[in-house]
Simulated scan of single mutants.
Amino acid sequence: MNKQLEKLYRIAQKEERIIIGLMSGTSLDGLDIALCRVTGSGSDTQLRLLHFTTVPYTEDFRNQVKQIFAKKQVDHLLWSTLHVKVAQVHADMVNASMKAWGIRAADIDVIASHGQTVFHAPKDPINRSDQPNSTLQIGDGDHIAVKTGIITVSDFRQKHVAAGGDGAPLVVYGDALLYTSEVEHRILLNIGGIANFTFLPNSSSYLEAYATDLGPGNTLMNQYMQLHLGEEMDRDGALARRGVVHEDLLNVLLSMPFLTSKFPKTTGPEMFNLVLLQEAMQRANTENLSHADVLATLSEFTVHVIVDGVQRAVRELDSAAIYISGGGLHNPYLLQGIQKGLWGYRVASFNEIGFDPDAKEAALFAILANETIAGAPEHVAHINGSPAVCMGKISFPY
């Protein structure tokens, strides 16, 4: 037997595995690295976060990725080069983090690498086409495995698409295994570049879990700040707070058919971008708005999309609790609007159910890798709109 296959077989039979989960989102701010101890599989899975860090990207690296990010036409040489470079950069970040934590490669069973999404193309839920669903993440798993010396599971979203899914959101798999409550119905809301949530009915309910994208989280606000003010974000919503919401522009943005299409659904910056904003501003005759007023309107757009989506999910329930993770959790102005819109429901940080909200997505990819190595598709057969599959391609160091 190949020695690497033999090693993988031994890892699969262990009672617990040490897995590094990697996540880089559409915000392109950096790489989340979560060192996790995972015990069991399926509904018996237990997860303990041992270390967590976010390693920021350099401006030069970020700008290189932006040249092919969410663009229909790209330089194929750059695309091919970045597929390798992203993996090498991520591997270097993993190696540096392990050194800082006093961890050796031999101590790690598996790396679970999400990669960097550069294009997400589900079928348009309104104007269905004859093209298949597709999604693309760069950051080759072989390069990560070779450079770290650790077996790497990567490219998770392709199996989801191949089995009939949209490739996103994938967090529902880990959420359902780890955070289903015996008592309360839960909405696990993630506000990254795109806002999405996982609906988790309590364990005695006849309802099924599902995950869905809602629309823009931080992406439009971040893109606007980067283009017009040279800043990565409107930190703490400070500029939006000084502005006034322009109702005509807001109503044009809210008229998008995607926002009222049925759950579950998926989207990305390919739909919610500055081209969309410019067209909306032209239609609303608001091209001369101040930066503060535009940011206030975009913030209110995100609030409305989230509040409306959550209310659609819970309107027939007696009660539900909403737990928030993602970068939007750190924007108090945005959070204030969401809490106001969801008055009457429990709205809290994800850490109230026992986990660092910033580490959640990276850790959940560790769970996906754990299921690939030691789980089974039937463990996630009860999730609405998501195929029962184990995801990810396995790369050996040699």
Rank of each mutant, 00 (worst) to 15 (best):
K3W: 12
L8H: 01
L8A: 00
R10E: 14
I11Y: 02
Q13F: 12
I18S: 07
I19C: 03
M23S: 10
G25Q: 08
G30I: 12
L31G: 05
I33S: 13
R37L: 15
G42H: 10
Q46A: 15
L47K: 09
T58W: 07
Q64C: 03
T81W: 10
V84A: 12
Q88P: 04
S97R: 03
K99L: 14
W101A: 09
I103F: 07
H114Y: 13
V118F: 07
V118H: 04
I126Y: 12
Q131L: 15
Q131H: 14
L136Q: 09
I138Q: 05
I138F: 09
A145T: 12
V146A: 15
T152D: 10
D155I: 03
F156H: 07
K159G: 01
H160V: 06
G164M: 11
Y173M: 14
L177E: 10
L177H: 10
T180P: 06
V183L: 12
V183Y: 12
I191K: 09
A195K: 07
N196H: 09
N202Y: 14
S204A: 11
Y206R: 07
Y206M: 05
Y210T: 03
L214R: 00
N218K: 03
M221E: 01
Q223R: 01
Q223E: 09
Q226D: 08
L227M: 08
E231F: 02
R235V: 09
L239C: 06
A240W: 07
R241M: 12
D248W: 00
N251A: 13
V252W: 05
L254E: 06
L254P: 03
P257M: 10
L259K: 08
L259S: 08
K262A: 15
F263T: 07
P269N: 14
P269C: 10
M271K: 15
F272I: 05
L276P: 02
R283I: 15
N285T: 12
E287D: 09
A296V: 08
A296Y: 07
T302L: 08
H304V: 12
V305M: 06
D318K: 13
S319A: 14
G327W: 08
W343L: 04
D356Y: 00
A359R: 00
A359Y: 00
A362C: 00
A362T: 00
A366E: 02
P377W: 07
H379W: 05
N384C: 08
G385I: 02
S386R: 12
S386N: 08
A388D: 06
C390P: 04
I394P: 03
S395G: 07
F396T: 05
P397N: 08
Y398V: 14
